[in-house]
Simulated scan of single mutants.
Amino acid sequence: MLDQEFESHLPTRDFSRRDFVVTTIGSGFAAAVLPVAAQTLTTDIHGLDAGPVTITVGDFKMPAYRAQPAAGKKLPVVLVLSEVFGVHEYIADVARRFAKQGYLAIAPELFLRQGDAKAYADIPTLISNVISKVPDAQVLRDLDATIAWAAANGGDTTRLGVTGFCWGGRITWLYSAHNAKLKAGVAWYGRLVGEASALTPRHPVELAGDLHAPVLGLYGGQDGGIPLDTVDKMKTALKSGSAAARRSEFVVYADAPHAFHADYRPSFRKEAAEDGWQRCLAWLKANGVA
């Protein structure tokens, strides 16, 4: 069953194609949450090599947004995993923020086989038509291919991290149990429990014992879609898990809602977002990614 976090904090609006058109990956904002909030951050590309790239996964050409220092070689790599809305301007900007810190940051479009998430203005329809049809196994393969691309294009994948938001936060936990070469993960308010299905056979709480890399979980105490008792269940599972699991940590921002880092949305909470960002950078550095 899909967690209600995806829709419980977002307004449903009707926008025509002429109101909102996405022409390239990393451009525009999620139609489902327009209008964009006034506090939205914008990171410039000065000194960066940033823009769309294409990653080959079998016979599929997967778009992605890449940002890195223009003069960099053998850079640490961080995967940036999107919310349900795909790789729009907010996710691209997060990639640029990492690039400013010296990373090769890459955000792959992980839904396109099922549909273009950025084209939807109605969240329940987006979830039923696209997100609910995306298999975890497909996502993990696509991330493996993304890392191979990074290794061939200036990245040092011995220094590999992953971070993700909402839907991507859940995948952060899954990928930390999937890839033995991963050094660290940072999961922003990704759901931790759920019903098993053919497409989502296991959830983070069931994979806690298998983590290859420690994960920092950044969660909101007022997140109606992720009850704090599920955070407690994950903490308990981690205590009896792998060495990496036991090194994992949670930070819960008591007054923060879901999506508190998403500066383009009303859910943004500046203090929690800034603290979480600094903790994210410190976690990656402390675990060998920087």
Rank of each mutant, 00 (worst) to 15 (best):
Arg96Thr: 15
Val139Ile: 07
Ile131Val: 14
Ala152Arg: 12
Gly72Arg: 02
Val139Arg: 00
Gly102Met: 03
Thr163Pro: 07
Gly154Phe: 07
Ala31Gln: 04
Val77Gln: 01
Val77Gly: 02
Leu160Gln: 10
Trp149Lys: 05
Ala38His: 11
Gly102Cys: 06
Ser82Asp: 08
Arg66Gly: 02
Arg113Leu: 08
Ile127Lys: 09
Thr43Trp: 06
Gly72Met: 01
Val33Gly: 05
Ala71Thr: 15
Gly154Gln: 14
Phe111Ser: 10
Asp144His: 04
Asp49Tyr: 14
Ile127Met: 13
Ser132Gln: 11
Gly161Ala: 13
Pro52Ala: 04
Cys166Ile: 11
Asp144Trp: 00
Asp49Glu: 14
Gly72Tyr: 04
Ser132Ile: 12
Ala92Pro: 13
Gln39Arg: 12
Tyr90Thr: 12
Pro69Asn: 01
Phe165Trp: 13
Leu110Gly: 10
Asp136Val: 02
Asp142His: 00
Gly169Tyr: 05
Pro63Met: 09
Thr146Phe: 11
Ala107Arg: 10
His88Tyr: 14
Asp122Arg: 01
Leu41Phe: 13
Val130Arg: 07
Thr54Leu: 10
Pro63Val: 06
Ile91Ala: 00
Lys100His: 15
Phe60Val: 11
Ala119Tyr: 02
Asp122Val: 12
Ala37Pro: 08
Ile91Lys: 01
Asn129Lys: 11
Trp167Asp: 05
Gly51Gln: 15
Lys118Gln: 10
Thr42Cys: 08
Trp167Arg: 10
Ile171Asp: 01
Leu81His: 01
Phe165Glu: 12
Asp142Ala: 01
Pro35His: 09
Ala92His: 10
Asp122Glu: 12
Val130Ala: 01
Thr54Trp: 05
Ala119Gln: 04
Ser82Ala: 15
Lys118Tyr: 07
Pro35Tyr: 13
Val87Tyr: 07
Thr56Gly: 06
Ala95His: 10
Leu112Glu: 09
Leu75Ile: 05
Glu89Met: 03
Asp136Asn: 01
Leu140Ser: 10
Val77Tyr: 02
Ile127Arg: 10
Tyr103Arg: 05
Asp49Arg: 08
Val36Thr: 15
Ala99Tyr: 09
Ala70Trp: 08
Asp59His: 13
Tyr90Phe: 15
Tyr120Val: 03
Val134Asn: 04
Gly115Ala: 13
Gly47Lys: 05
Ala99Asn: 11
Leu34Gln: 15
Asp142Arg: 00
Asp122Phe: 03
Pro63Tyr: 06
Pro135Ala: 06
Ala148Cys: 07
Lys61Met: 09
Tyr120Gly: 01
Thr56Gln: 12
Pro63Asp: 12
Leu34Met: 15
Leu112Gln: 04
Tyr120Lys: 03
Arg96Glu: 09
Ala150Pro: 02
Val80Ala: 04
Ala148Tyr: 03
Lys100Ala: 15
